[in-house]
C-alpha cells in the first residue's frame, strides 16, 4: 500500500456536549468504531466512554522529579565532600539540611520541564508543527465525532451518516486528512 494514502474522515458536528455524550453512548451500543472525538474544551465523562486509558504523564513526571532530586543532592554532595570541601559557618562539609531547598527546587524544575516536553512530544505538537485541522469550528463551539472511513463501502458510509444525524448531529461532513 502506498504510504501517502489520505485518511478519509466522515464526521458529525454536534452543538452541545450532552448531545455528543449521548451520541457516543449510542455509537458504543451499535459497536461503531470511532476514530476520534474533538471538542473546544475537555468534556468530562468522555474518556471512559471512548475507552481511553488514563494518561501516564504523571508517572513520567514522578520519574523526572526523582532524577532532579538525585541530580541536585548528589551533585552538591560531590562538590562539598569530594571536589572542593569547604567549611561554612562551622558546619560539617556534608550539611544535609541546607541542601534541601535546592534539591526541592530542582525536583520541581525537572518534573515540570520533563512533563511539558513529554506532553508535546506524545501529542505530536510543538513550535512550528502544522497539524491538519479537521474543522475550524472545533476550537469555537462545535463537538465532533469522527470516523475513519477509508475501507468502508458507500453503503456503510451512508449508514454512518444516518447514525450521526439520527443522534443529533447538526451537520454530517467528510474530509480528506493527510495520513
Amino acid at each position: 500500500m502506498a504510504a501517502t494514502v489520505n485518511k478519509e474522515v466522515l464526521y458529525g458536528v454536534y452543538d452541545d456536549e450532552e448531545i455528543l455524550l449521548d451520541a457516543i453512548k449510542e455509537a458504543k451500543r451499535a459497536h461503531l468504531e470511532i476514530w476520534d472525538v474533538f471538542s473546544p474544551f475537555p468534556v468530562h465523562g468522555l474518556d471512559p466512554l471512548l475507552g481511553l486509558s488514563e494518561s501516564r504523564l504523571h508517572i513520567a513526571g514522578f520519574i523526572y522529579g526523582a532524577i532532579g532530586t538525585l541530580t541536585a543532592f548528589l551533585f552538591m554532595t560531590w562538590v562539598f565532600t569530594r571536589d572542593w570541601p569547604m567549611i561554612f559557618g562551622g558546619k560539617p562539609y556534608w550539611s544535609v539540611p541546607s541542601f534541601i531547598p535546592i534539591t526541592f527546587e530542582l525536583t520541581v524544575l525537572f518534573a515540570a520541564v520533563g512533563m511539558v516536553v513529554s506532553f508535546y512530544i506524545v501529542n505530536g505538537q510543538g513550535p512550528g508543527v502544522n497539524n491538519a485541522i479537521l474543522d475550524e469550528r472545533i476550537t469555537d463551539d462545535k463537538f465532533i465525532i469522527a470516523f475513519s472511513v477509508n475501507n468502508y463501502s458507500e453503503e456503510e458510509k451512508e449508514k454512518l451518516s444516518q447514525f450521526l444525524s439520527g443522534t443529533g448531529a447538526s451537520e454530517v461532513l467528510t474530509k480528506e486528512m493527510p495520513a
Binding site: D36, V37, L46, S55, L57, H58, V129
Partner: peptide, 23 residues
Amino acid sequence: FGWTGSAKHWQRWESLSLVLAGL
C-alpha cells in the same frame, strides 16, 4: 503548536495541568 482539540490531547492536557498545579 498544532493543537487539534482531540479527546486524548484534552485528557493529557488536564492531567498535565493537575500535576503542574500540584507541583
